[in-house]
């Protein structure tokens, strides 16, 4: 439990540092982003929102306040989820834009990443168990090659061959045109069909990483005495592989989750961009291109929070799987 408390403290700290980096970034860069933002608003729009300039100043700097004053305002606005108004989606507030786009990304990356974890560790475990067997010789190199491919190249190839040429998958957007989001069968099935190809691409990109990691650890675990002992006890091969070797081998790859998940969230930007998928990644790219720094900055914060939350969930899982962490 002490371990978990330490992790929690670290996450809170990491969140604070991420926020601070986010606060400092625009202030350290040459030029003043605030002019870029204000360019996108007409005088009438500015007049209609008297507080807006102050909000932006607190977010990206450029006002007459001291940096400390800005910092306090910035933190308090973030706590209240007030990220200002998005200039590219004017007059929608940033939080609303995020609320509309983030669920798509969470769905996409959540499903795909979970699947890639299951498939990757499963194959890795089996490949190590049967060294030099069919799985080890065919599936492992295949997924390795796939994951060595740049994700956006895989996405483009998938879009062209599987989507456009073969026509198996829709190639754009999160749901069919003409539908509106809601909890009805029509929308959900459409959303599911549109997510298939992006999910396949993420699977192709990340399964190899889990697989290789699991295989390496598993190879070392198989040499452990408790695995030999399990064999000697006359347990079935399957039970030894899963409950003795696999159960232990899965712990180190879980600890590598943070870096891999953070990079998957990054890959999302490309995949959403290629498939015109209206998630947080595509929104981020468009916000940056359109100088909508308030939106961009808020998205970075939100994505960091997502990674932290995912890590927290993994830590809980780790705690369930490894009894040594509970008492240590």
């Amino acid at each position: 439990m002490r371990w978990f408390a330490r992790r929690l403290v670290f996450y809170v700290f990491a969140l604070w540092v991420a926020l601070t980096i986010n606060f400092l970034l625009p202030r350290m860069m040459p030029g003043s982003p605030i002019d870029g933002i204000l360019q996108h608003l007409t005088p009438a729009q500015l007049a209609a929102n008297p507080g807006i300039v102050k909000t932006y100043e607190a977010l990206v700097g450029g006002g007459n306040n001291s940096i400390w004053q800005d910092y306090i305002t910035y933190l308090s606005r973030i706590v209240h989820l007030d990220f200002g108004v998005s200039t590219s989606h004017y007059p929608a507030p940033v939080s609303q834009v995020i609320g509309q786009t983030l669920p798509y990304s969470i769905f996409l990356v959540g499903v795909a990443f979970f699947l890639s974890f299951l498939i990757g560790t499963g194959i890795g475990m089996f490949a190590a168990w049967r060294r030099g067997g069919a799985v080890d010789n065919i599936l492992v190199p295949t997924f390795m090659a796939l994951s060595a491919f740049p994700a956006f190249f895989t996405a483009l190839l998938g879009l062209y061959f599987l989507g456009l040429k073969a026509g198996w998958f829709p190639i754009q957007h999160a749901y069919d045109n003409g539908l509106s989001p809601g909890f009805n069968w029509e929308f959900l099935s459409s959303a599911f069909r549109h997510a298939q190809l992006p999910i396949l691409v993420i699977l192709a990109a990340y399964t190899g990483g889990w697989m290789l990691n699991m295989r390496t650890v598993m190879i070392n675990t198989i040499g452990e005495d408790y695995v030999t002992m399990a064999h000697a006890k006359g347990l079935s091969d399957r039970r030894v592989m899963t409950w003795y070797a696999g159960r232990n081998a899965i712990l180190p790859p879980l600890n590598g989750f943070a870096a891999l998940f953070a990079s998957a969230v990054g890959g999302l930007v490309f995949i959403e961009y290629i498939f015109s998928y209206p998630g947080a990644g595509l929104t981020l790219q468009q916000a940056v291109l359109g100088n909508d720094y308030a939106l961009a900055q808020a998205l970075l914060v939100v994505l960091s929070v997502c990674v932290i939350v995912a890590n927290l969930l993994m830590d809980v899982l780790n705690l369930i799987l490894d009894p040594r962490l509970r008492t240590g």
């Binding site: 991420a18 969230v265 916000a287 940056v288």
Partner: peptide, 18 residues
Amino acid sequence: NIFLVIPPIPLLVVMSGY
């Protein structure tokens, strides 16, 4: 560890915007 928690591509995207 903090750099492992902040997703690098979004960070780069935002930075290259600035």
